[in-house]
Amino acid sequence: MKSAPFEHHEPTTVDEAVSLLESLDDPTILAGGQSLVPMLRFRLANPDVVVDINGIDSLDYLREEDGHLRVGALARHADVAESDVIDEKYGSFADAAPLVADPQIRNRGTVVGSVAQADPKGDWGSVLLAHEGEVVARGPDGERAIPAEEFFLLPYDTTLGEDELITEVRVPTPSPNEGSAYHKLKRKTGDYAMAGVGVRLTFNDDGTIESAGIGMTAVDITNARATDAEEHLEGERPSPDLFAAAGELAAEQSNPESDEHGGADYKARMVDVLTQRALGDAAERAGTVTVKRRVTQ
């Protein structure tokens, strides 16, 4: 498979990139390229102009700063998987990163690129939704932060402007009473999710849930929030029954379609299962509960 010809622009600063996006006719942004390059090779995408942002060194970062975890547009999945700060405090990111594709793809593919791609089967959108994160974009009129919830419109379609470049995604730094997790079901390594669920639980000092965030993968036209389940959890004390009820609500709110990754009913049931599992992990990571199995296996 061979791409059609295109013009290749390699800006080295965000300003340069933004002005290219503004001046060029229908440009396509190339970051990690792990989804885009196959589309180019199949000629499913035939852009005349490609703006390759890999040379913008200032976007290659992953750090905690100003009350946020900030993931720059050139941070690769592998950077997340290998980060100590992620390992320590961001359970959902630590869970999700090694579940993305395979090692080589994690070395090239970027978190921001995955979010920008807006594939409902992508993992990072759900993590962002669970954490009530933001997508930071730069355009000709300057920078704006788009709440994750307002970012995804349709499969492969977002509220990003045509002349805007995502410079980072960010989530608030967790409080000490917070835990998060991401669970994903897939048929094999390298396959997209049959279903995935990211959760964040923030606890009050009395052990009740202050707030919950739940993002779902591959079960709607975009990554989607399970708001009913979130509301049901708030103010409550964790218990298997509570989490089961939340799982049920998330499943009800999901809207999966039957496809090669499984039937719609199955996916909805798995939203339930994965939500319960992820809630258990998040609660454990927050130091609130210890999950015990009644019998071996």
Binding site: H8, G33, Q34, V37, P38, Q104, I105, R108
Partner: peptide, 19 residues
């Protein structure tokens, strides 16, 4: 098509030579 680019394994069919 895996090669090491600057020490990291990558798929050389998912990257343009110019990159």
């Amino acid at each position: 098509c895996t090669v090491l680019k600057d020490g990291e394994p990558i798929k050389s069919c998912l990257m343009f030579a110019a990159q």
